[in-house]
Design a protein around this nucleic acid. Structure first.
Lengths: 221, 221
DNA sequence: CTATCATTCAATCATTTCATTGAATGACGA
DNA sequence: TCGTCATTCAATGAAATGATTGAATGATAG
């Protein structure tokens, strides 16, 4: 069968991969796994989903060759199979961004600070950091920060923004980043900082993209 | 709702795109549309599918922002929305290629000529053509050839390979290409030419990729 | 060897997707 | 304005997918 009709068989294989990407929860799982390997249990906790459900979706991703599984003690650590997965995610996102007005509407509707929402590019950030002009904050939870973060970044989880900002120099610009280009946490961080009188912008994308670009990553001490 | 939970709403939008790519027929449709715009009727004929079915799938692709529709006389011409669609297709294919042993098995199982199946790269082909060392054949149907082909290529549809090869110099190497990197026709052309005593290789991918790389495309006279 | 416990499986029901048929739409061209 | 015809819609049944529950698995740690 696969021998008699290789064309259809190939499309079927490609479709399996695309179909595996075709579910909101699985995409969210991929974004989390892009921060680092996780056990089923840990991932389920991050997502606020029943363990069995997460397990099922992980199986689907595994069948499609999107994630790999490796036993570690009594846990099984799932991780993205390779970098091509992130590229595929990004490519799908690019189609959605360009075509679905919906995406733009969602982001704009959520954050009224429409002006100067223009994000900071990676090159720009590197220059700013080199010159010591900005404070870089990583608004992800501490465990994700510990698995790797941008050089010079300090960890200020979303819930601690307000406390942190009181001790910070209000005249100094802040750049915030989190899990990826559409990760909501950095949007919220920027909105919060601005309402507290700080000058703040987002990095255009997150940790996984930074790492995938071959830029240096710092690990927890 | 989308305002209250932008994260899920965004993932949902991305999932719509991926889901639209998650069907073998739709992927095949995308590959055909990558050759040029087509009416529903023409596309259905190419695919050997009922018109209504093709129409439905086109709607699905349109909803996801993957194809665009434009009326032309009494036909509606569907085309890929933009280049990002091809990138997404390629990215999904890359995941499948790297991870699904199945893909490799299908290709290898179909063509026993295992040795020297190494394809010709785009740069390599340009050098070979510049030096006049190879004959470049486009094995797609004439209508697709007419919509654009590689400079210097001659159109030899699959069914005419044998006739053509009798009039060709058997000592000269042939490079064949068709719709894309996994398009079966160029595999078959190479196999046929080899069994007829010619030296033949495939181009690593097809017309759409050539065009997307910004390389020159020739139109029918 | 055995108890533990992270993970997977199995079974269920609700929901969605898919192919197919034939009828309805609606823009073009005269 | 009207007929034509490419395209879409609507309705059907079959098949696949998704969430949830609780039980089964099976590797580890003691």
């Amino acid at each position: 069968m696969s021998i008699r009709n290789p064309k259809q068989a190939l499309y079927k294989q490609f479709a399996i991969v695309a179909k595996a990407l075709g579910h909101p929860l699985r995409l969210e799982m991929i974004e989390h796994l892009a921060q680092g390997a996780r056990s089923v249990e840990a991932l389920a906790a991050k997502l606020g989903q029943p363990i069995a459900n997460v397990s099922q979706h992980l199986q689907a991703l595994r069948r499609a060759g999107i994630v790999s599984a490796e036993r570690d003690g009594k846990f099984i650590r799932y991780a993205l199979a390779d970098e091509s997965v992130l590229s595929a995610f990004a490519a799908v996102r690019a189609v959605a961004e360009r075509r679905l007005a919906e995406v733009d509407r969602i982001v704009r509707g959520y954050f009224d600070a429409r002006d100067d929402m223009r994000p900071v590019g990676r090159d720009e950030l590197q220059a700013l950091m080199r010159d010591g002009l900005v404070t870089l904050i990583d608004v992800r939870p501490p465990d994700e920060f510990a698995l790797g973060h941008l050089p010079g970044a300090i960890n200020v989880p979303l819930g601690k923004i307000e406390v942190w900002s009181r001790g910070a120099d209000a005249g100094r610009e802040v750049v915030a980043y989190c899990r990826g280009p559409w990760c909501v946490m950095s949007f919220e961080a920027v909105a919060a900082l601005r309402s507290l009188g700080h000058s703040a912008r987002r990095l255009e994308d997150g940790m996984p993209e930074w790492k995938a670009a071959g830029l240096p990553v710092e690990m927890a001490a």
